[in-house]
Design a protein around this nucleic acid. Structure first.
Lengths: 202, 202
DNA sequence: GTCTATAAATGGATAGAC
DNA sequence: GTCTATCCATTTATAGAC
């Protein structure tokens, strides 16, 4: 794909994530990129087209993560507390707090209030897709007697609830500082230890 | 307060909650109320003034809820599973899904992406304030041996995580349908029974 | 591919009639 | 209190030069 087009898309995402689609003008995007607004119309049909292609990118991201989950889904041999906790910390920092993903999440948080497609993508990105994967993980952990007998979906939803809520509590909204991120990580460690000790058999 | 002013405020809230402050024009608000935009300037200094007064209302709501919590905080005599579950269902439907509160939450979801004050209000409204109250409740339940020995704050945070996540998963974003609300309630009952059985001593 | 120039609509805000 | 009329900046989008 063309380099200029990618820069326009990323810049638009950055602005949409903070101000929302409707509040950002084509001129704003052009100014930040360093081109005239008429140039943007060379790459995109109109303003809506930029948003549509960004939403399509979110759909691709969801599909890619799904695929990555199944590909990396190796057999689980043993799960110690430290491994379990650091897996959750890694998930928070590499998914929710990943620069690009965070922008998608923030953009969707705004657009989902008026756009049904954005609502579906948001729910899929932060609930449906990860919970589906996590259900499989807990199923294996229960089958191998690392975790006590339980409903794997309920376990996964509980797990996701904690991570999502900690993310929103500390890093939801206005650009999270490094203090916010630290706070989120600290609280996550605490609750993941709690979770492990609750359900682990070791 | 003047009747017209209240109508303007409520209409502005309704539009801000869906499209966001920046995307709504004074003309849009006037048209929906059925008055000319110049009339709005009789009641408000400018557009920003409308938003500021709405944010002040959220602050008042948080204070009022805090006060209501301490006032209604009667001694807990006994807590059966059905009471515990229906208290959570009541909380979801009367707080998160209350018509007016839901609009505040949706407006803040948008504004918090660019407005630090809105971020603080959102976190206080959906996390800090309710978790503080719920911590007190669990403290009493543990002291009276209805719930097993545990950290009351952690218990409260876990409780709030589940309710908040179920709210966002089913009713976050685009105007929730009655099916969405039903789905949220169904899942909440399931997870509240699970929670009760996990921690109850009876 | 990127620019200038421009059209047509819409934005926030004010002055002054009633 | 609510309206009409108006100002001026900004918006999306297009036509056409380079």
């Amino acid at each position: 794909m063309n380099q200029t087009k990618i820069v326009i898309q990323n810049t638009a995402l950055e602005l949409f994530a903070v101000h929302g689609y409707n509040a950002v003008s084509i001129r704003d995007i052009g100014k930040k990129v360093g081109i005239k607004e008429s140039t943007i119309y060379y790459y995109f049909e109109n303003k809506q087209d930029i948003l549509n292609q960004l939403l399509a990118q979110v759909e691709e991201l969801i599909a890619a993560m799904k695929e990555a989950f199944t590909r990396k889904f190796s057999q689980i041999d043993d799960v110690l507390e430290t491994e379990f906790v650091s897996a959750a910390v890694h998930y928070l920092n590499q998914f929710f707090l990943n620069d690009h993903v965070l922008k998608y999440i923030r953009m969707l948080s705004i657009e989902m209030q008026s756009n049904q497609k954005a609502t579906e993508l948001y729910r899929s990105l932060v609930f449906t897709m990860p919970v589906e994967h996590q259900t499989q993980v807990f199923e294996q952990m229960i089958a191998k007697r690392f975790f006590r007998e339980d409903d794997a979906y309920q376990l996964a939803m509980e797990y996701q609830s904690i991570i999502y809520s900690i993310f929103q509590k500390h890093c939801g909204g206005y650009a999270p500082t490094s203090d916010d991120i630290e706070g989120a990580n600290r609280e996550l460690v605490l609750f993941m230890q709690r979770f492990y000790r609750q359900y682990s058999l070791t």
